Amino acid sequence: MLFKSKFLLPVLAGAMLLQSCGDKNKSDEFYTTADGLAYKVYEQKDGEYVNRGEIAADDTSGARLGQVITMHMSYRTANDSVLFDSRQQGQPVMLPVMEPTFKGSLEDALTMMRAGDSGVFKISVDSLFANTFNQPMPPFVKPGTHFTFYLKAEKVQSEQDAIADQQKMFEEQMLAQQERAKEQIKIDDAKIQEYIKEKGLQNVQKTDAGVYYVITEQGKGPKAKAGDNVSVHYKLSFLDGKELESSYDNPMSGGQPFTFPLGQGQVIQGWDDGIAQLNEGSKAILLIPSTLAYGEQARGEQMPANSILRFDVELVDIKN
């Protein structure tokens, strides 16, 4: 993706070893530019990566200012702790080629890369954090050392072409996600029906979108309309009974109900859909398939991807 910041901020992902483009040629030497950038750049010839050797200062075959490089990128500390790996993220990154922020910078490295090239670059951590990341150096990084960047350039394009590619990629990802969701809703629906039978729930209803709900106490007030502010007490749990959180004893809200505008997309779709079925004062059980909750998005260790959620709710108040 195209990032708003100049480069990715470092994220500690744990120590692991990566297979880099230069692992098969460990005897290959690093070269150093006049600005102090240590590098090894490889090109593909007959299916093999070959060290390009020393690259002349006036070589203009690499990426130019204003262009965008689509690449896989990883970088690690001097003690081989991996901080970022785009392959672990499942997609390459797109970085615009900008003016260098210091001598021997990552921006300088990008201008040495051509489409299809792979490169290994050693960059000063002191300069990197001070001039590119623009943040204090974290305690696990030792001053005076370097980060080693491993780059594999897939495309070098104009900004316009890169944006078009990015849009196409997003559309393809969205279509793939929708197809996965179609299958997941079938899986979730079967699990919810089994749960209903196991718990002996009666008078279960289902919305068009797919939320199952049971009104356990019928309220006498009106139903909320889209745009109304609703106040809801809730208890969240998994189908196995494990409780995750409750508004009744939430210290952050002082035990007050959760208030939000209905039908505005500010909560999960299952809530917008389920709460709309209730009269003010009602209590109910909402069984929400993962596709109407957080879907493939895991929310830490407490909530894995594709989690079906049970909410025991009370619609306390409606304000137009």
Rank of each mutant, 00 (worst) to 15 (best):
F149P: 06
A153V: 02
S158I: 03
E159F: 12
D161P: 00
I163M: 07
I163T: 08
A164D: 08
M169S: 06
F170Q: 13
Q173N: 12
L175A: 12
Q184P: 05
I187H: 14
D188K: 13
D188S: 13
A190C: 04
A190I: 03
K191P: 03
Q193V: 04
E194C: 04
E194L: 08
V204W: 08
V204G: 02
D208W: 08
D208Y: 10
Y213F: 15
T216V: 01
E217F: 05
G219R: 02
P222L: 10
P222F: 08
D228P: 02
H233N: 14
L239S: 07
L239W: 08
D240P: 02
G241Q: 02
K242R: 14
E243C: 08
S246Q: 09
Y248R: 14
N250L: 08
P251Q: 14
P251L: 11
G254Q: 07
G254M: 11
G254H: 10
G255E: 13
P257Y: 13
F258Y: 15
T259Y: 07
T259F: 04
F260I: 04
F260Q: 04
L262N: 04
L262D: 00
Q266C: 08
V267D: 06
I268L: 14
G270V: 13
W271V: 11
D273T: 15
L278E: 07
G281I: 11
